[in-house]
Amino acid sequence: MTNLLLAFDLLLSLTLVGLAAAALTSREPRRAVILFIAFGLLLALVWARLRAPDVALAEAAIGAGLAGALMLAAARRAARGARGPGGSESSAGQD
């Protein structure tokens, strides 16, 4: 039982660190944001594992949900701004 939970904790921490590294090193903003959302969900799992359901709730709702959605919109806007607003190629290709 304790060994199982230890394995669970180790796996959770490793995945979390891996995700954080992937999010930080990714060059593309949208990829980084999606990795960040996944990171937030896993972080909520960590809080849940630490028996802090209230913190997990806040992390899932604010960290992954709200911040994720906002950052997704921001990343999109940044990408559009970088290629020039209303540029013929970018506005057609960028849905």
């Binding site: 849940a48 709730l57 992954a64």
Partner: peptide, 18 residues
């Protein structure tokens, strides 16, 4: 920790948001 079920509920609510 039965409250974890509530956390799962919030996960479910936010699944569509992304």
């Amino acid at each position: 920790a039965p409250a974890l079920v509530d956390v799962a509920l919030v996960f479910a609510l936010l699944a569509a948001v992304a």
